[in-house]
Design a protein around this nucleic acid. Structure first.
Lengths: 213, 213
DNA sequence: CGTCTCCTTGATTGAAATCAACTTAGGTGG
DNA sequence: CCACCTAAGTTGATTTCAATCAAGGAGACG
């Protein structure tokens, strides 16, 4: 909670109405905030991966999004959290406490515009996600996910998955088994190579893109 | 296209940077704008229902949202449309031309805040939609849709569907047949009554809510 | 009255879920 | 360092829910 003597993380993005950030570390699977919690902070991923998600009856889970180092998350228009956030891997996160998003937007024009852009980008992603979930087959979903994730790596680099098969499944509206089988099928067709479970070579990116339809 | 001599529709919502609205009528299934079109206007539904949606290979379609009288739609952050819009029923719509959303937001504080709120509400809806599509069964989807739609009617009133089974199916990520069968199943269990295909009585709203899980 | 489009219902198929072992890979502590 | 333990991942057999294929029925409209 207290500021470290060394680097004090200041948010460069929304330059108003918050205290300096507090750095915290989370173990894998640890909850950052839960559905219904008070929304009095936003967050920035420093290292690791965070998932935001929702739970349904019967232990069903829908992962909304994965947040990577540099990403901001946890904005909420209302007073309460509509999603929960958990560390998908061990993660370091900066907490920026604030009053309300409205007050930030009202007082700082530049911050308001950034917030708006953030909301619009999130909306676009959520709509794309809905198409994926509603109208695509298992192989199209997995291919689309791999392409998306691979975008975080340079084209020649291999792809390292930072999340479990369960996380991928819950993001794509599938089961772990189906994700596993689909990846195996892609490997058999020489589209990818599974060096280890988390280390993937995109042997044939063009074919992969075709699979995503 | 030209202004009628009588009532000129002025937008009360985003009070800047557009000409007065032009009223237009659309036949059922008529396109209002298509994916990739220039985004130089936003719209308000006066009567009828509009669907915004996206198309995939193989004729697959995902309906993003239904827009009812009073609803605004067609905001776009970028220069181009990411979704298309079509009249789900015969519809009357006001067109408000504008330069860019950014210019609106930059010049008018109140309009910017409204736009932001609109984006955030849309985001919340899109995220809820993703959960529905990813992790719910056919009966849960249909029940959730009916509850949502019924909210536009007073509790004692019967529900009139303004869209086809195909529209509902494409909104829920199902087929027409599954929607039809699921409604039939609900009727057999005395949860709803299908007076006609489009006229539904919610016989047991509590049971319906349970079905939506 | 005939011809659309929309909707329903039945039969069958099929893709993904479920159930069930089994394997692999990390991580920890002796 | 290695042996054990657990979480994560794979693979196979089977089931199930929804899709597909197919045929009719019900309205709306010229």
């Amino acid at each position: 909670m207290a500021f470290a003597g060394s680097a004090i993380p200041m948010p460069t993005h929304f330059g108003s109405l918050h205290t300096a950030g507090a750095l915290r570390h989370y173990a894998q699977h640890q909850e950052i905030f839960g559905e219904g919690d008070d929304a009095d902070a936003y967050f920035k991923v420093v290292s690791g991966v965070v998932r935001t998600c929702r739970f349904l009856s019967g232990g069903r889970r829908q992962v909304d999004e994965f947040h990577l180092p540099g990403d901001l998350f946890g904005f909420e228009m209302g007073l309460h959290r509509r999603l929960c956030a958990e560390a998908a891997s061990a993660a370091t996160i900066i907490h920026y406490r604030h009053r309300s998003i409205e007050s930030v937007a009202a007082n700082d024009k530049a911050a308001a515009l950034r917030l708006f852009e953030h909301a619009v980008r999130s909306l676009a992603r959520a709509q794309d996600h809905a198409v994926l979930l509603g109208r695509r087959t298992a192989i199209e979903k997995v291919a689309a996910f791999l392409i998306d994730w691979a975008a975080h790596f340079s084209p020649d680099e291999d792809v390292i998955l930072a999340m479990t098969r369960q996380d991928i499944a819950d993001y794509l509206g599938l089961t772990v088994e189906t994700v596993s089988r689909t990846l195996a099928r892609m490997e058999k067709h020489a589209v990818i190579e599974l060096c280890t479970a988390r280390w993937i070579k995109l042997t044939d990116p063009v074919a992969l893109r075709d699979l995503a339809s």
